[in-house]
Design a protein around this nucleic acid. Structure first.
Ligand code: MN
Ligand code: MN
Ligand code: ZN
Ligand code: ZN
Lengths: 143, 143
DNA sequence: CTGATAACTGAAAATGAATATCAAAAGCAT
DNA sequence: ATGCTTTTGATATTCATTTTCAGTTATCAG
């Protein structure tokens, strides 16, 4: 799994003529070791606390590369910070976002995805990506 | 239609003990005269070009009031600017966003909305709002 | 291995949207 | 009109992200 992701990035780097650097290796390692929905700052701090000095700019730049390489997805919730999550090949999910405790529940719904395709087709629209977020209170925060 | 919106804001203002000001009247007029999905900056410039001096801060503040009053909805696309659209009572729609020409197509799908409710219910989640955006190329930009 | 070249890094500065500050102005009740 | 409270807006501030650019490093031809 992790090796597969590393290979994926390697292939991407090769195809784009990117160089292999210490920083990119470290950032990839740490990104792969995180759970879902990490903000750039969280990653930066995690790297910092490992006594590995890497600059902010490099973390930002590298996460964009991961996104381009298809192994990360950018998520913009309503907290003013860009977050990244892992892309699992052949999977897609959307989010229930709790405004009480900021927790995120993931869900998949094939019917919704199909309806989206139909709507797009009806408008001659070519889908590249989509996002769907449901905001509200999770079971815990309701009570 | 426009009178109805003005009354709506008036009622809201009264219920909140807000004062009636020249600035709020102007911003409401201009907001109601726009089409969908205006950014704060666009509104600000429109006001400025009408030779009516109103500060940035006031435009930001007032649009939040409109949102609270239920006559505007905040939209966050991927261009780093908050936009606002008109709320039509009893209606809801989502967006197809063209990454080629930045145009936006609106659509409604009752089945998707119902599926969202079901998913939320399944997780004991109480929905407050949701957003769904499909990104890609519109019919024009495809060709 | 060596040197040339182009890519990469990161500290620091810049950007840009949005918010906070606060003194002056304006609305409203009496 | 008076007095009190809200509102405004120029300005400063915040904060995430991007840009700059000089120094560093990876890669590759010789
Ligand atoms: Mn997720
Ligand atoms: Mn719309
Ligand atoms: Zn919660
Ligand atoms: Zn288009």
């Amino acid at each position: 799994m992790i090796l597969e992701k590393k290979k994926m990035f390697n292939d991407f780097a090769t195809s784009k003529g990117l160089r292999s650097t210490r920083q990119r290796d470290i950032i990839l390692d740490i990104f792969l070791s995180t759970h879902q929905h990490v903000s750039v700052e969280e990653l930066y701090l995690k790297i910092k606390s490992s006594n590995l000095g890497i600059g902010h700019a490099t973390v930002y730049r590298t996460l964009k590369l991961f996104t381009e390489a298809g192994l990360a997805r950018e998520i913009l919730l309503h907290d003013g910070q860009t977050r990244y999550e892992h892309v699992v090949k052949g999977e897609h999910h959307d989010h229930l976002v709790c405004t009480g405790c900021n927790s995120i529940i993931e869900f998949e719904d094939a019917t919704i995805e199909k309806l989206q395709d139909e709507i797009a087709a009806r408008h001659g629209f070519l889908i590249k990506s989509h996002k769907m977020e449901i905001y509200g209170l999770c079971a815990n925060c309701r009570s």
